[in-house]
Design a protein around this nucleic acid. Structure first.
Lengths: 217, 217
DNA sequence: TATAGTTTTAAATGTTTGTTTAAATTATGT
DNA sequence: ACATAATTTAAACAAACATTTAAAACTATA
């Protein structure tokens, strides 16, 4: 008997294709459970149960819970950052880019409500997990948006401000609203629908506030 | 033998005084570990080790890990909200109150760097834990600051905005900066000292931004 | 259809988990 | 000093944990 066929990648990729559905099902289940419960709160059995598969398969395909987590984490880190970086590099004017970045962040956290909490918490608990993706993350420091910002400041249109201050404004402020969603709903006794309306309104306020701050100096 | 003397509170409080140091030591250790690792990431043995005490004592004094957590959680929820509520009820003018609230939030998260992440994450994972403290939390909806805001809006000084929109601006925006501290330090390759300077600068920007937004309409 | 390659399974591995036990120790009131 | 109450201890508990095993069940192909 030879275990870890898949894990050690001993055989041709052609053969592996046949295993794709199972491997994919585990990843999808793991993604779902990790997002909801975090690494510490998730057990291998949770994942197997969610995927409706034998417990041994998670280790057969991914060798360990940690390695499976790191694959999911990498994907989710991409989902969290990649589109934003792309928008910041787009060929549109400065102010539109501000609005689009805020809108995109709002859409992202609306569509994947646990993503923010997951990323923020897992990075906080174990920041060393970021190291393999550091080069990817550092892209945020060198975007077309950064050049545009510099231009606008030099022209005197926009007040002096660094990229490290403005990006959290575009991405973080609306994220915080969703990070504290449950808290907000309890305090203000609202349901999901009412919260969504509130968040949407708040998003527009953030846009106006940032523009107001940048252009009035 | 009679176990759970302390836990079931069968005997006079005079006797219990002698146990205070131990009970307190466990609470302090638990607070420290829970803050750092969260509920799921903390084991009873972590706490006992941190307190340098026998494992059985956590259950002797608090009956279960869950009950011990809920005591800590209650305290930390208070630390997270009480002072802010007090400031919002203070007898100072509207704009000073805005600045003081932001400054206080900044001090709070500086002094207890894990507090924000802890509250945000634990409430997200198990919002039902808030229920015993709901009345306390709802105080935020009825503060002197709310009345002052209404006045300022009626006078036409400040743009129309609800308490549910303005309080997250005062508390949440600076919190987000600290929630993503590790992420920020990795992306921008800064050390603790540099991050603190950045956060302090950003705090002042938030103040100016909010005032700019509220008073220019 | 025989065979080798691959996937899935039930069962077991040794740890670690939260919690409990009963005995040993310390403190208290008289 | 003594009896009783309270605290602390080492050891054990069953359950849950991540992971591994070896055999069984598939699948592809020659």
């Amino acid at each position: 008997m030879n275990r870890n066929y898949k894990a050690v990648k001993k055989y041709s990729s052609v053969k592996c294709i046949s295993s794709k559905p199972s491997e994919e099902r585990i990843k999808e289940a793991a993604r779902k459970v990790f997002l909801k419960k975090g690494f510490d709160g998730t057990t291998s059995r949770d994942i197997a149960e969610e995927a409706d598969m034998n417990i041994a398969l998670t280790n057969y395909y991914f060798r360990s819970k940690e390695k499976l987590f790191l694959e999911i984490f990498k994907d989710l880190l991409n989902l969290y950052f990649q589109n934003t970086i792309d928008i910041l590099n787009k060929d549109i004017d400065f102010k539109s880019k501000i609005f689009e970045t805020i809108d995109h962040t709002y859409e992202m956290v609306s569509n994947e409500p646990d993503l923010c909490n997951f990323i923020v918490n897992e990075v906080h608990r174990a920041p060393e997990r970021l190291i393999p993706d550091l080069n990817f993350l550092r892209q945020i420091r060198r975007t077309k948006f950064g050049e545009q910002l510099k231009e606008e400041i030099e022209k005197g249109n926009v007040r002096p401000i660094g990229i490290e201050n403005i990006v959290p404004m575009l991405c973080g402020y609306i994220q915080f609203i969703f990070l504290g969603k449950n808290m907000h709903m309890k305090i203000f006794e609202t349901n999901e629908e009412q919260f969504d309306a509130y968040a949407k309104d708040h998003k527009e306020r953030i846009k106006e506030m940032i523009v107001c701050y940048l252009y009035n100096h």
